[in-house]
Computed example of a mutant assay.
Amino acid sequence: MGGTKRGPGKRRAQGELETTVLMTLHEAPEPVTAAWVRERLGDDLAYTTVVTILTRLLAKGAVTREKAGRSFLWTPAADAAGLAAHRMRQVLDGESDRDTVLTRFVSSLTDDDEQLLRSLLRQAGEAGPEEGGVSEKRD
C-alpha cells in the first residue's frame, strides 16, 4: 500500500492517517509491529508518528496490542465493517454541523437502509447506555 504523495506543506485531512494505518493493519497477515506498518505506508513518516497513531487507535478501541519482546504487535480490533464504521465516525467527528450532516445522510438512505437504521436505533435504545445502547447525553 504505497503512501499518497502530497506537495510541500500539504496536510492530511483529519483522521486520514488513522484510517490509512487501520487499512494497513487489515492487510497484515498476522499481528505486526509499528515498524512493519511504517514500512508499508511508504510515506517517509517518523516511527514515532506511527506509534502515536497506533496508540491513539488503541485508546479509541480500534486496535489491540500484545507485548512481543521489546515492542508490541498490533492488530485491528474490528473487521472490515468495523473499519468502515470507524471511518464514518471520523467524518462525523470532523464536522462542526453534525445535525445537518446526519440529516443529509439519513435523507440519502434507501428505504431499506432507513428501516434497518430505525430498527438498530430502537434496539440500541432498548438496551440502554449501560448495555451499549444509545445514551441520552449529548456532547
Score class of each variant (00 low, 15 high):
residue 123 Q to H: 15
residue 93 D to H: 09
residue 139 D to C: 13
residue 87 R to L: 03
residue 85 A to F: 07
residue 125 G to N: 07
residue 40 R to E: 01
residue 48 T to W: 15
residue 112 D to F: 06
residue 80 A to C: 13
residue 71 S to T: 06
residue 103 T to H: 08
residue 106 V to K: 02
residue 90 Q to L: 03
residue 136 E to G: 12
residue 60 K to L: 08
residue 91 V to H: 01
residue 122 R to W: 15
residue 66 E to W: 01
residue 69 G to A: 07
residue 114 E to Q: 07
residue 15 G to N: 04
residue 86 H to Y: 12
residue 14 Q to G: 11
residue 30 E to Y: 05
residue 108 S to W: 07
residue 49 T to Q: 06
residue 85 A to Q: 13
residue 55 T to Q: 10
residue 66 E to I: 07
residue 134 V to Y: 05
residue 40 R to M: 09
residue 139 D to E: 13
residue 73 L to H: 01
residue 17 L to Q: 03
residue 20 T to F: 13
residue 13 A to R: 06
residue 65 R to V: 01
residue 35 A to Q: 00
residue 79 D to Q: 04
residue 79 D to L: 06
residue 139 D to L: 15
residue 102 L to Q: 01
residue 34 A to V: 01
residue 94 G to R: 05
residue 104 R to E: 08
residue 9 G to F: 13
residue 51 V to E: 02
residue 74 W to P: 02
residue 52 T to W: 15
residue 110 T to F: 14
residue 51 V to N: 09
residue 107 S to N: 09
residue 123 Q to M: 11
residue 26 H to M: 05
residue 60 K to Q: 13
residue 98 R to Q: 11
residue 70 R to C: 02
residue 137 K to Y: 15
residue 63 V to S: 06
residue 39 E to Y: 08
residue 109 L to A: 01
residue 17 L to R: 01
residue 138 R to W: 13
residue 60 K to W: 05
residue 94 G to M: 01
residue 83 L to V: 11
residue 55 T to G: 15
residue 134 V to T: 12
residue 93 D to F: 10
residue 31 P to N: 00
residue 74 W to T: 00
residue 127 A to E: 04
residue 97 D to W: 10
residue 76 P to Q: 05
residue 86 H to T: 07
residue 109 L to G: 01
residue 98 R to S: 08
residue 1 M to I: 10
residue 76 P to L: 04
residue 60 K to Y: 12
residue 22 L to F: 05
residue 21 V to C: 04
residue 131 E to K: 11
residue 117 L to I: 11
residue 104 R to C: 10
residue 97 D to H: 09
residue 44 D to I: 02
